[in-house]
Nucleic acid binder design. Structure first.
Lengths: 169, 169
DNA sequence: CCATTACCATACGCTGGAGTATGGTAAACG
DNA sequence: CGTTTACCATACTCCAGCGTATGGTAATGG
């Protein structure tokens, strides 16, 4: 429901309707709507954290790791949709810390890869932030239907362009 | 109110309270909350459109124009805050078309500047989208308090880095 | 001078979501 | 075999925002 309509759409009564149960039942499993959201957020963050290590941790060549970071945008659709909606809900007290940790983790990964490619630590940090900004901006454009379809050759060409611009070597 | 708390915070009763009037009075001036939001959106879009032409249209040197685009992120705080919140409300039926037009206008400007710098039309379009993504991603990071303060020297250094990476020549 | 117009307040009804109180049922268990 | 436990429904209350009905007042104009 977060992926479809955003954080605020994760509400007790709509959820219950959708599941064919009632509120009474829901409140046996969760103490409040806040608790439900917290569980959902924790679940997603864990999944995302594992994903980061599994998918990118294995690739030893730093350039391939970075390239894979961009190519991944096209896959794992659900997770990206959730993240996109979470970004839209920045400012929400429960969402904010999640976003902070996730962005931090990911940028640290990027920064390490850029350092391995020979950039000095400061430049690597800047480049990581820049790269992550591109990713965030892409998600935003996607929410506005301003990106070519993910499976078109224009999309692939654009990704090529981004890779060539941002990844040295 | 949009800049402070987002589109959904622009509500009739809170607005009336804040102005020290009542709902009854509000509904004499506006037919509905929707109408108010529409007027606010139109107003902002017009202001932004004029701004684009005034600030960037005058600069003849395309590189300076691009550099000024980035430097502007630090200024015009209110407008950027509004835009940032509008982006968060993408998916909203009234907000969506505004976002689409604004992004289109701005990217067209960027694309033209890159063409003037010698890029072929396709590369210029890609580079414009990339550049605009960086801007959107920056706004997002700002919403998450993940950027250095706008008036620090680290911020200036980062902007330098971005300019050097994205603007040819 | 009376009536219309512009502007604002009071007081209502409606809706949707949060949370609670209470009772029902089926399975497991002592 | 009765009772506890897990799970679910019904039926409320509470609250905040949207919109409306209606009446008051001050200024303006025929």
């Amino acid at each position: 429901m977060i992926a479809e309509q955003g954080v605020q759409a994760l509400a007790v009564e709509p959820l219950a309707r959708r599941m064919g149960i009632t509120k009474g039942s829901f409140y046996w499993h969760f103490s409040s709507r806040e608790a439900l959201l917290q569980r959902a957020l924790n679940r997603w963050e864990e999944h995302d954290s594992r994903n980061l290590n599994n998918a990118l941790g294995e690739i030893s060549n730093p350039r391939d790791r970075l390239v894979s970071f961009f190519r991944r945008v096209g896959k794992e659709k659900l997770t990206h949709e959730v993240y996109s909606e979470l970004c839209a809900a920045a400012g929400h007290a429960q969402v904010e810390p999640v976003l902070e940790r996730v962005a931090q983790r990911r940028m640290t990964h990027l920064s390490a890869a850029f350092e391995e490619l020979g950039l000095d630590p400061v430049a690597a940090r800047y480049q990581a932030r820049l790269t992550y900004s591109v990713y965030l901006g892409f998600l935003q454009l996607q929410r506005q239907n301003q990106t070519p379809s993910l499976s078109s050759e224009e999309f692939d060409a654009y990704i090529e362009h981004v890779i060539n611009t941002l990844i040295p070597g």
